[in-house]
Protein backbone atom coordinates (compact mmCIF):
# COMPACT_ATOMS: atom_id res chain seq x y z
CA UNK A 1 0.00 0.00 0.00
CA UNK A 2 1.26 3.48 -0.85
CA UNK A 3 2.45 5.67 2.00
CA UNK A 4 -0.02 8.47 2.70
CA UNK A 5 0.83 11.93 3.99
CA UNK A 6 -1.78 14.17 5.51
CA UNK A 7 -1.52 17.91 4.94
CA UNK A 8 -3.98 20.53 6.13
CA UNK A 9 -4.65 23.99 4.72
CA UNK A 10 -5.74 26.79 7.02
CA UNK A 11 -6.20 30.46 6.25
CA UNK A 12 -8.71 33.27 6.01
CA UNK A 13 -11.94 32.79 4.01
CA UNK A 14 -11.11 33.40 0.36
CA UNK A 15 -7.44 32.47 0.64
CA UNK A 16 -7.95 29.73 -1.94
CA UNK A 17 -8.12 26.53 0.14
CA UNK A 18 -11.19 25.02 -1.54
CA UNK A 19 -9.98 26.05 -5.01
CA UNK A 20 -6.57 24.55 -4.33
CA UNK A 21 -7.96 21.16 -3.32
CA UNK A 22 -10.50 21.13 -6.16
CA UNK A 23 -7.76 21.94 -8.69
CA UNK A 24 -5.25 19.38 -7.45
CA UNK A 25 -7.25 16.40 -6.28
CA UNK A 26 -7.08 13.23 -8.36
CA UNK A 27 -10.41 12.17 -6.91
CA UNK A 28 -13.64 14.14 -6.86
CA UNK A 29 -13.08 16.35 -3.82
CA UNK A 30 -15.35 16.19 -0.81
CA UNK A 31 -16.73 19.65 -0.08
CA UNK A 32 -18.91 21.10 2.65
CA UNK A 33 -19.67 24.53 1.23
CA UNK A 34 -22.82 26.46 2.08
CA UNK A 35 -24.06 29.90 1.06
CA UNK A 36 -22.63 32.76 3.12
CA UNK A 37 -25.12 34.63 5.30
CA UNK A 38 -22.83 37.40 6.57
CA UNK A 39 -20.72 40.17 5.05
CA UNK A 40 -18.51 37.52 3.44
CA UNK A 41 -21.30 37.14 0.85
CA UNK A 42 -20.04 40.40 -0.69
CA UNK A 43 -16.79 38.74 -1.77
CA UNK A 44 -17.75 35.08 -2.21
CA UNK A 45 -20.93 33.09 -2.60
CA UNK A 46 -20.10 30.06 -0.50
CA UNK A 47 -17.94 29.13 2.45
CA UNK A 48 -16.63 25.85 3.86
CA UNK A 49 -18.23 24.85 7.16
CA UNK A 50 -16.54 21.52 7.93
CA UNK A 51 -13.73 20.54 5.58
CA UNK A 52 -12.58 19.98 2.04
CA UNK A 53 -10.85 16.74 1.18
CA UNK A 54 -8.87 15.62 -1.82
CA UNK A 55 -6.05 13.26 -2.75
CA UNK A 56 -2.96 13.86 -4.82
CA UNK A 57 -0.96 10.95 -6.22
CA UNK A 58 2.78 11.56 -5.84
CA UNK A 59 3.87 8.47 -7.78
CA UNK A 60 6.73 6.66 -6.02
CA UNK A 61 6.63 9.22 -3.19
CA UNK A 62 3.17 8.07 -2.11
CA UNK A 63 -0.11 9.88 -1.80
CA UNK A 64 -0.92 13.26 -0.37
CA UNK A 65 -4.19 13.61 1.53
CA UNK A 66 -5.32 17.22 1.34
CA UNK A 67 -7.59 18.70 3.99
CA UNK A 68 -8.90 22.24 3.95
CA UNK A 69 -10.44 23.76 7.06
CA UNK A 70 -12.97 26.60 7.31
CA UNK A 71 -11.39 30.04 7.49
CA UNK A 72 -13.53 31.42 10.32
CA UNK A 73 -12.18 31.02 13.84
CA UNK A 74 -15.56 29.72 15.08
CA UNK A 75 -14.69 26.44 13.31
CA UNK A 76 -11.45 26.02 15.26
CA UNK A 77 -12.66 22.66 16.62
CA UNK A 78 -12.30 21.14 13.14
CA UNK A 79 -8.54 21.14 13.63
CA UNK A 80 -9.01 18.55 16.37
CA UNK A 81 -10.93 16.41 13.88
CA UNK A 82 -8.05 16.28 11.38
CA UNK A 83 -5.08 16.49 13.77
CA UNK A 84 -4.17 12.78 14.05
CA UNK A 85 -1.24 11.83 11.84
CA UNK A 86 -0.73 15.27 10.30
CA UNK A 87 2.48 15.77 8.34
CA UNK A 88 2.10 19.51 8.57
CA UNK A 89 0.07 22.64 8.05
CA UNK A 90 -0.02 25.09 5.16
CA UNK A 91 -1.12 28.59 6.10
CA UNK A 92 -2.59 29.97 2.91
CA UNK A 93 -2.74 33.74 2.42
CA UNK A 94 -4.44 35.69 -0.35
CA UNK A 95 -1.45 37.93 -0.97
CA UNK A 96 -3.42 40.07 -3.43
CA UNK A 97 -6.05 41.02 -0.86
CA UNK A 98 -5.93 44.38 0.91
CA UNK A 99 -6.99 42.54 4.10
CA UNK A 100 -4.37 39.81 3.81
CA UNK A 101 -2.51 40.79 6.98
CA UNK A 102 -5.70 41.03 9.04
CA UNK A 103 -6.68 37.60 7.77
CA UNK A 104 -3.28 36.14 8.61
CA UNK A 105 -3.38 37.73 12.06
CA UNK A 106 -6.73 36.05 12.77
CA UNK A 107 -5.50 32.71 11.45
CA UNK A 108 -2.42 32.87 13.66
CA UNK A 109 -4.49 33.95 16.65
CA UNK A 110 -6.67 30.88 16.10
CA UNK A 111 -4.02 28.26 15.34
CA UNK A 112 -0.69 29.46 16.77
CA UNK A 113 -0.76 26.97 19.66
CA UNK A 114 -1.05 24.10 17.18
CA UNK A 115 1.40 25.51 14.67
CA UNK A 116 4.21 25.70 17.22
CA UNK A 117 4.17 21.89 17.44
CA UNK A 118 3.81 21.00 13.77
CA UNK A 119 5.83 21.63 10.64
CA UNK A 120 4.19 24.54 8.84
CA UNK A 121 4.71 26.72 5.79
CA UNK A 122 3.27 30.13 5.01
CA UNK A 123 2.17 30.06 1.38
CA UNK A 124 1.45 33.37 -0.32
CA UNK A 125 -1.22 32.68 -2.93
CA UNK A 126 -2.82 34.69 -5.76
CA UNK A 127 0.18 36.99 -6.29
CA UNK A 128 3.03 36.08 -8.65
CA UNK A 129 5.63 38.12 -6.80
CA UNK A 130 4.57 39.40 -3.36
CA UNK A 131 6.56 42.51 -2.35
CA UNK A 132 9.36 42.12 0.20
CA UNK A 133 7.65 44.56 2.54
CA UNK A 134 4.57 42.31 2.59
CA UNK A 135 6.70 39.25 3.30
CA UNK A 136 8.40 41.15 6.11
CA UNK A 137 5.01 42.06 7.60
CA UNK A 138 4.00 38.39 7.46
CA UNK A 139 7.28 37.49 9.13
CA UNK A 140 6.60 40.03 11.88
CA UNK A 141 3.18 38.48 12.53
CA UNK A 142 4.73 35.02 12.70
CA UNK A 143 7.37 36.25 15.16
CA UNK A 144 4.69 37.84 17.31
CA UNK A 145 3.29 34.34 17.78
CA UNK A 146 6.78 32.81 18.27
CA UNK A 147 6.57 30.93 14.99
CA UNK A 148 9.51 30.22 12.73
CA UNK A 149 8.11 29.32 9.34
CA UNK A 150 9.33 29.40 5.76
CA UNK A 151 7.44 31.83 3.53
CA UNK A 152 7.03 31.13 -0.15
CA UNK A 153 4.92 32.40 -3.03
CA UNK A 154 2.72 29.76 -4.64
CA UNK A 155 -0.05 29.30 -7.11
CA UNK A 156 -2.09 26.92 -4.98
CA UNK A 157 -3.85 25.56 -8.06
CA UNK A 158 -0.56 24.26 -9.45
CA UNK A 159 0.51 20.74 -8.66
CA UNK A 160 4.24 21.55 -8.77
CA UNK A 161 3.85 24.38 -6.25
CA UNK A 162 1.91 22.25 -3.77
CA UNK A 163 4.41 19.39 -4.11
CA UNK A 164 7.15 21.92 -3.33
CA UNK A 165 5.27 22.85 -0.15
CA UNK A 166 4.87 19.17 0.74
CA UNK A 167 8.61 18.58 0.31
CA UNK A 168 9.37 21.57 2.47
CA UNK A 169 7.06 20.26 5.20
CA UNK A 170 8.80 16.92 4.96
CA UNK A 171 12.21 18.53 5.46
CA UNK A 172 10.83 20.49 8.42
CA UNK A 173 9.46 17.30 9.92
CA UNK A 174 12.78 15.53 9.50
CA UNK A 175 15.04 18.29 10.79
CA UNK A 176 12.82 20.61 12.75
CA UNK A 177 10.76 18.37 15.02
CA UNK A 178 10.28 19.90 18.45
CA UNK A 179 9.94 16.52 20.09
CA UNK A 180 6.28 17.11 20.94
CA UNK A 181 4.37 13.86 21.42
CA UNK A 182 2.82 12.51 18.25
CA UNK A 183 0.12 9.95 17.79
CA UNK A 184 1.91 6.88 16.41
CA UNK A 185 0.17 4.61 13.92
CA UNK A 186 0.04 0.88 14.78
CA UNK A 187 2.96 -1.06 13.34
CA UNK A 188 0.72 -3.20 11.13
CA UNK A 189 -0.44 -0.22 9.07
Amino acid sequence: MKQSYKMVFVGEPGAGKTTCIAALSDIKPVTTDVGCTDELAMIKETTTVALDYGELDLGDQGRLLLYGLPGQSRFRFMFDVVRAGLLGVVILVDAASSHALDGLAETLETYADELRHLPCVLALNKHPDPPDTFKQQCQDLLRKHKLVTPILAVDARKRADVIRVFELLFVLLEYGSDGAPRQEAPAWL
Partner: peptide, 28 residues
Protein backbone atom coordinates in the same frame (compact mmCIF):
# COMPACT_ATOMS: atom_id res chain seq x y z
CA UNK B 1 -26.26 27.40 7.73
CA UNK B 2 -22.76 28.90 7.88
CA UNK B 3 -22.46 28.26 11.59
CA UNK B 4 -23.63 31.39 13.37
CA UNK B 5 -26.21 31.34 16.16
CA UNK B 6 -29.69 32.72 15.39
CA UNK B 7 -31.63 31.83 18.53
CA UNK B 8 -31.11 29.42 21.39
CA UNK B 9 -32.56 28.07 24.59
CA UNK B 10 -29.89 26.37 26.64
CA UNK B 11 -29.88 27.96 30.06
CA UNK B 12 -26.15 28.58 29.70
CA UNK B 13 -25.36 24.87 29.27
CA UNK B 14 -23.63 25.33 25.91
CA UNK B 15 -21.55 28.06 24.32
CA UNK B 16 -23.85 29.27 21.51
CA UNK B 17 -21.13 30.28 19.01
CA UNK B 18 -19.40 26.93 19.17
CA UNK B 19 -22.66 24.96 19.26
CA UNK B 20 -23.87 26.71 16.09
CA UNK B 21 -20.59 26.14 14.27
CA UNK B 22 -20.48 22.45 15.24
CA UNK B 23 -24.10 21.94 14.20
CA UNK B 24 -23.46 23.39 10.74
CA UNK B 25 -20.28 21.29 10.33
CA UNK B 26 -22.13 18.11 11.31
CA UNK B 27 -24.98 18.79 8.94
CA UNK B 28 -22.64 19.63 6.06
Amino acid sequence: RDGRPYAERSGGRVEPGKFAAMASSLLA
